[in-house]
Design a protein around this nucleic acid. Structure first.
Lengths: 222, 222
DNA sequence: GACATATATGGAACGTCATTCCAAATGTGG
DNA sequence: CCACATTTGGAATGACGTTCCATATATGTC
């Protein structure tokens, strides 16, 4: 399993080319669109050839996710203050997960592997810079991380559902709101009352508010 | 494979029986163990018959998840104070997701449907009781919910990975810690330094600490 | 510059699943 | 007891991930 040293045909396969193609397919056709057949077709090769560069589908998905996450984190401009940087990182990830909903579910399946580790590291550095006591560092970082992953996961689930039913975001929210507003008032008073607000809410603003909530819990002023 | 002719089977199929069987399979064999063939076998019927009571696999998974979540929420003893009740609900869910890791990923795929709605409602009632301003209710509830789902998702991913590689929890953590401690010190200082702590940390305590962090952000004293 | 070897490729073949189909069995109301 | 709706079980279908294998293409050696 050595790396090839020489130069092959220019359009030869490579892990990076495969990952790029996978990202393009995931973006255009969603998670279900990514199959080794589709991939082979866009790469003008056979399904078997891909396995020379990629362990399996999970490996590919994680790698694709990692590529996007790495770009995203690099692009996130850190403010002067750690708190601002944490917000910037989080918002960057939110936007990425909004643009590529498949990232949400990929991250959810990634365990402690690269894409998550990358996020953890960046958050950790900022939390440390914030002066959080050492024995609370892990707790703090993993709370922020879990929150981000949770939001991303729900985002992905919603996008998937909406996509499968041919609804855009606002139609989808109306649908949900409608469903919720018809619930039993005794059993679901809260959901019913919140249903009205649902269609006009701003995911991104809510996300940031959640981050601020956690930061305030650590003692970082909003 | 016919049963005694003349009488319909006494243990005739029903949505509930199917869901029960699914839960048993999920608990014993994990997510990958749940197939319609396996289900049909334990229910002593054919795969096709199941579709009379259940829409598809996703429906089944969501229903199974909902059954467990409903039980869990009912069992959660609310304290006198809303804050304590929120903690109790969260911890109850954590324990459920710890015992049935498949719930984590099922919830992640459940969108705004029943199991999630159920959790949202219970949290919402408590947040409301807490006196959070109305325009912050949704934000607050969905922050807590996202956090819980995020933790559950990671839990599920870890359990799945560990299961697939025949590792128990502590072996798995040692593995991860070992991996992290070999990372490039310049690129991953935080992850490296935290790796030592990893094997001895207590998921449950960390989870509760995260909940407390958010609650403190709302202004609920720990 | 040809041979031996490691590296890559492409497509067929396999096994597993979810899902659909359909013929038969079983219940129900008239 | 007879039409009719409901329910069942198993076979067929089609999609997919993965493995296999017969070729191709580079590299190093002499």
């Amino acid at each position: 399993m050595k790396k090839a040293v020489g130069t092959r045909r220019q359009d030869s396969l490579s892990r990076d080319r495969i990952i790029d193609a996978a990202i393009r397919i995931l973006d255009s056709d969603g998670e279900t669109g990514l199959t080794f057949q589709a991939l082979a077709k866009t790469l003008a090769t056979g399904a078997g050839a891909i396995y020379w560069h990629v362990e399996n589908k999970n490996d590919l998905l994680t790698a694709a996710c990692d590529a996007v996450v790495a770009r995203t984190l690099d692009a996130a401009e850190g403010g002067a203050m750690p708190g601002a940087t944490i917000r910037a990182l989080a918002v960057g990830l939110f936007d990425a997960m909004d643009e590529h909903p498949w990232i949400g579910s990929a991250l959810a399946r990634a365990g402690g592997k690269m894409p998550i580790l990358r996020i953890l590291e960046r958050l950790g550095q900022q939390v440390r810079a914030l002066g959080v006591p050492q024995d609370a560092e892990w707790t703090t970082v993993s709370a922020i991380l879990s929150y981000i992953l949770g939001v991303g996961g729900q985002n992905a689930a919603n996008a998937q559902f909406a996509g499968q039913h041919g609804l855009d975001r606002s139609k989808f929210l109306e649908e949900v709101a409608d469903e919720w507003s018809r619930l039993d008032p005794d059993e679901f008073p809260f959901a019913r009352s919140i249903a009205l607000y649902l269609p006009q809410h701003d995911d991104r603003a809510d996300f940031v508010a959640g981050i601020d909530l956690i930061l305030r819990g650590i003692g970082v002023p909003s």
